[in-house]
Design a protein around this nucleic acid. Sequence first.
DNA 1: AGTACCACCTGACGGC
DNA 2: TGCCGTCAGGTGGTAC
Length: 262
Amino acid sequence: MPELPDVEGFRAYIERTSLHKTIEKVDVRSPEILRGVSANKLVRMLKGRRLESTRRHGKYLFVQLDGGWWLLYHFGMTGQPRYFKDMSDDPRYDRVLISFTNGFHLAYDCQRKLGAVGVTESVDEFIRERKLGPDALDVDFAAFTEALHGRRGMIKSALMNQHILAGIGNIYSDEILFQARIHPITRVKYLSEKRLRELFDSMRRVLTAGIDHTVRSKALPDSYLLSHRGEGEMCPGCGCKVEKLRISGRTAYYCPECQGMG
DNA sequence: AGTACCACCTGACGGC
DNA sequence: TGCCGTCAGGTGGTAC
């Protein structure tokens, strides 16, 4: 489930808990989640180093080491960082455990192993190699329309496509489309300038609200579709029944009344 | 370029 | 009780 707002919350969490502390020990419990680096190499790279700063791009979180390289996290569906002192608080699905000389630990907790941990020398190079689009909160309206330009597919697929815009997943794409009153299967090329503007505004509003609520660990307002994301639930806008649709293997929830095809 | 579909992974849940 | 299918969804690969 971690999408842009959640990962931004994780970034802030690591920022306030884990920086500037010397790494004493690294324990790779599930080496299969490592990407492009062996357990031995990761341990060698981290030991004795400090985490100095953070950066997020889309759903990726990068943490810079004092040597210049970056540790990178992708949280898949169930991943999260956890900072704690007592080993009795070590999360059940801790896959990579970093222990600092101050006695505290930073765990990469990930129940389903759909996430990844790795290293990179350059964040920009990593983004280029992965062909990630610009971060969804980093684009202005011109860059937003540029990213969507020439697309013929469905708007929900486009919003979730990390090559077009990085950071939006299934849950937030539903909310963004709901608030922009756009049906998920609408073709990108049929969106007018006005509709694109409404979509862009909705995207910014929803993502920033998501960050705000994530950081304060509060639920999103009841007026959001997210709070009613289930079959047969009531639309917070008009009260009619929320419907679901299968779009390229993902379940899209939407309000057929508020998000009519026009 | 876009889409459908599969696989990865683990736990919850419903049906029988 | 317990077995089975299905679902959740981020990503990546394949086939069309």
